[in-house]
Structures are given as C-alpha cells and as structure tokens.
Design a protein around this nucleic acid. Structure first.
Lengths: 204, 204
DNA sequence: GTCTATATTCCGATAGAC
DNA sequence: GTCTATCGGAATATAGAC
C-alpha cells in the first residue's frame, strides 16, 4: 500500500541513479562517476551511503528482481482456469516488460556473468514454484481438454515467446525492417498472438 | 600471395584467447591481461598485433556473428516444404547453440550495450531476408494447409522457443530443480518438442 | 617478434575540511 | 552530510632493449 515517501533524500537520489545506470550497463559497464553525475552529487557520497560499488549493486539488483518475481507468482498461484491463467500471465508479463524493457536483459546478463554473486547475494528468495501449474496442466490433459504435452516444455515455450522478443528487439527491428513504433505495436500485439498460438496448439 | 596458414601462429593464439574471453565476459568484463595470460604471451603483443582492445574485439565479434548467421540462411532459403524447413531450422539452430552456448547471450548483450559500435563496425553484412519464408507461409495459409497466422509472429515464436531457454538456462535449472545433465537433456529434447508444438498450433 | 619496463588514464575508495 | 583532494591499484597502451 504505502511506498517509501523518500521525498528527495540524497540516498534515494543515489539509489535511483544507480538503478538507471546498472540496469542499462550491468555491473562491469557501470561507473561510480556516472552514477554520481546522474544523481547530481559527488562520488564520495556514494561511498558514504553504500560503502562499495558491490553493495550499491546488490541493493539495486534486488529491487529490480522484486519488480518482476512476486507479482508473477500471484497469477500462477491463483485458482483460475488454465486458459485464463495463460491469458493473465501473458498480458501481465508483456505489459510489465513494455514498461520496464531493460529488466530481462539485466537479469539474464548479470546472472550469466556473475552467477555466484547473483545466487548468493541477490536471488536467495522464494522463486515461483511450478508444481501447482504442472498439476493443473496434467489434470487438463487427463480430462481430455487439451492434448498431451510435457508441462515443462509448455511453460518454457510460453515464457520464451513473452520475453525473448524484447531481448532481440534491435535485431528483430533490423531484420523485419520496422520503425520503433511499429516494433512496439508488434510486441503489444503479441499479448493476443501468444495466447492464440498456445491455445491452438493445445487443441486435443 | 601467401594466405594466413596460422597453424599456431601467435596471432591465431591471441585471437583464440580473445574469442574465449570476450564470448564469456563481453567487452567491459574482458581484460587484456586475461587474454594475454590465456594466450600464454605478453600483454604488449596484443597491441603489436591488434593495436587496441576495440580492434581486437571487432575482429572477434565479427567471427562470432559469422558462426551463426550465414548457415541459418541456407536453411531458410532452401526449397523445402514449410514443415521440413521448420524441422531443419529448429534442429540446426538448437544443435548449433548446444555446441556454442554462449553465442546468443554475447550477441544479445553486446548489441544492447554497444548498439552503435555493433551496428557500425560489426554487423554490416547481409542479414537473413524474411520475405521468402513469409511468402511460403502465406501460400500455405491460402491453400488451407495451415490455419491463418501472421508470419512475423510465427517466426518470432519459433526463434524465441529455440534461443531463450539457453539464455535462461541457469534460472530455469533453479526453478525446475534440474541437474546440469537433466537440463542439457531437456534442451536437446526441445528439438522435437518445438516442432510438435508449432505444427499442432498450425493445424487448420 | 617478443620481452620488460613504464607512461597514462581511469576507477574505486578514503581522508579530512567545513 | 557534503564537499575537495588524493591515494592506490588496475587497465590500456607505448617505448625501447634484444
């Protein structure tokens, strides 16, 4: 309900600047000087509030992860039908990434480049549990309402189709010859396209 | 007259070491010292052969791109049926990434972090042209052999399902609770799963 | 061509005045 | 709390001996 008011405290300004910088450039690419400039303060203050670059990064990376993970769990753990759940998940996820287009690359990239740091210091929270949705898929198959399919692959397919186009956006634009606005519309349209595509595939 | 035989030439050793290093760490994360160590030579020699880190990176990045792009074009521009083309594409692509698992992250990550450099210095080659496959999809729809679907989304769906699981491999392993070998088997199995999934969706 | 040594720049971090 | 000044180390790059 209540977000942190943090009117324009220096600490908050630093955090926001670091968020912006780390999100776009990753840990290696981000420089403390750039964060200080963006926050409109001196480099020394970064260390006053956050001691080291690592600790500042940890705070930011945790916040970035939090943006995505918990809200997805709500959809997956609800008691909607499989089709409704799929629809909600796809819409929710794509809208989220449309508003925060750098999050997927940040997570993927940082987790691959600094796996130990990420798993130890950033991620140790409860991840989405797939068991519930697995069981739901299997019972739909048993009831003959959808064709037989390995739930793991189904989940991977859906998430892949939602997230990957954002990662590949610059290349996709180039290959398909689309303007920035056309590309955005295409990504937006995928909310419906993915649901149709998956439901068509699941017909018994 | 004399082409580069490069059997174990110093230049080749440097190139290989740089390839390894840039592929795993990207431009910002890679250090010239590490490349020199890996090549078993001195830092100064890197500059003797390649002048700057940028130029060494350009040479390596071009080679990495070449690994993937041209071979894909061969499949897409062949005269196979749509289903055969899909099958060949998926098998080819997944096998390629299984053998070179760091390529997708390298391309995605570097193109997003250094887009100007990448588009100016690395990419200016002929990219796969989608028109041919688009027309093939549309004629299959017109003939009633597959259901109506926007070719752009179909292509994006297929590529997404092939590539994304490799990018998300560490997280997927964690969420699904798989060993490294189980995860590899899952990715291998996707060659058939993706084709089934797509063909099922395309049923009229 | 290959090395050692060094120049130069950059960056994270700290000291100390206010 | 915030600043200026600076340290110490790392990283890219060059000079010069062999």
């Amino acid at each position: 309900m209540d977000n942190k008011p943090q009117h324009d405290s220096t600490e908050q300004r630093i955090f926001d600047a670091a968020h912006e910088t780390f999100l776009h450039k990753g840990f290696d690419g981000a420089k403390m000087q750039e964060i200080a400039d963006r926050a409109g303060i001196n480099k020394a203050l970064l260390h006053y509030y956050y001691r080291t670059k690592e600790k500042l990064y940890e705070a930011v990376a945790r916040a970035i992860i939090q943006t995505a993970v918990p809200r997805v769990r709500g959809v997956l753990e609800s008691d909607l039908s499989l089709e409704d759940k799929l629809t909600q998940f796809v819409h929710f996820y794509i809208d989220l990434i449309l508003k925060n287009p750098y999050i997927p690359l940040f997570i993927i990239s940082e987790i691959n480049k600094h796996p130990d740091h990420f798993f130890d210091k950033i991620l140790p929270k409860e991840l989405p549990k797939p068991e519930l949705i697995f069981r739901q898929i299997e019972s739909e198959i048993a009831a003959g309402r959808i064709r037989p399919i390995d739930p793991k692959h189904l989940i991977i397919n859906v998430v892949s189709m939602c997230v990957f186009p954002f990662l590949a956006r610059p290349i996709a634009r180039l290959i398909l010859g689309l303007s920035a606005e056309e590309m955005r519309a295409l990504l937006e349209a995928r909310k419906h396209e993915i649901v149709s595509f998956v439901m068509a595939s699941l017909r018994p």
